[in-house]
Design a binder for these strands. Structure first.
Lengths: 175, 175
DNA sequence: CAATAACGTTTCATACCTAAAATATCATGT
DNA sequence: ACATGATATTTTAGGTATGAAACGTTATTG
């Protein structure tokens, strides 16, 4: 936003192609279509949060969100996962996983062993160190997220979650 | 989704550090804190939309969201903007703008002229070609966004916008 | 059982991001 | 004038994303 994002603001919109300045200036809150305004807000919220989390992960743990996310996926899969599984879970391309995994393995946070059944695939698992380190990071990460979003009232939170869940379902169908 | 998502799914969480497996597996919808679940949904929605828009921009216009966003900011500033202004608007670092601007200038979509008042700064403006090209992209971009988000009912949309706006305000205060 | 299709992973070229250091210009106070 | 500091941009080094091509490993099937 990528997310991050970190990362961006999105665009306004034009209704027709008029004279000199072919596009209406369109401030974030004016006549633009509702959908566009939702998208802009959604993206800027996600970007801000992502940047904030990324910066703190770097400061406190000298790591990144990408690495944290990969560890998080392995943490909930004691049986391990293949590169492709992980790349699907993280919604990034297979190629992106390779370098990430190489470094995490070099840092001793994960193990990578050839699958006994299918020699094309690797099984990735958290190492003991990896599990410990992830535990520390996860606790702080949760505190940060709660601090960022927790300012919304519980009612606003559950409304927001509902709407985002609905949106996600529609997006899934689309794809 | 940055986020590009691009980009990503975020993490679960543990409540305390128990025996063997120090972390609860935590599926996306179970006992995790509301804030965490909101963040995960928010990020995955933003990532999906961002990837979708990026892919279509590449296919139809052979460009990217980053370039489109930069053009969009210039489109609403006929008086032009400095590199720093643009980097603030897009919420990316100054360094990221340099290469982007160089390519857009090489492609003839924007002009870059030294400011007459302050020779440290450049004024960036859309060229005629740039304005035309941006107009075409913007129209398609809007259609795509409407298609992606428009499946929500108008009521759900305006609720969602309200909540995101509230969240954004809180995030602004935080920073 | 060999050709071929499908799958899992890596490699490559390209793009974008950041933070920090380097450079260049302006603005001030003495 | 001049050192000092603030501002604007570029450069550098490092991390991560993509899509496409290449490869090795299975699976299928005529």
């Amino acid at each position: 936003m990528d997310a991050t994002v970190k990362r961006k603001l999105r665009s306004p919109k034009s209704a027709r192609p008029p004279p000199l300045q072919p596009l209406e200036p369109a401030h974030e809150s004016d006549g633009a279509h509702l959908e566009l305004r939702i998208w802009l807000r959604l993206l800027s919220c996600a970007t801000r949060i992502e940047k904030s989390l990324n910066a703190r992960l770097r400061k406190e743990f000298n790591t990144t969100l990408a690495r944290f996310d990969l560890l998080a996926q392995l943490a909930r899969k004691p049986e391990g996962a293949s590169m492709s599984e992980v790349s699907n879970l993280l919604m990034v391309s297979n190629g992106a996983i390779t370098a990430l995994v190489q470094k995490l393995e070099a840092d001793g946070l994960i193990h990578r062993e050839v699958d006994s059944e299918d020699r094309r695939t690797f099984r990735l698992r958290l190492s003991q160190d990896g599990a410990k380190e992830f535990g520390r990071m996860a606790r702080r990460h949760e505190e940060w997220v709660i601090a960022l979003i927790g300012e919304l009232s519980p009612v606003a939170q559950s409304d927001l979650l509902q709407h985002l869940t609905l949106l996600k379902r529609r997006l899934d169908k689309h794809a």
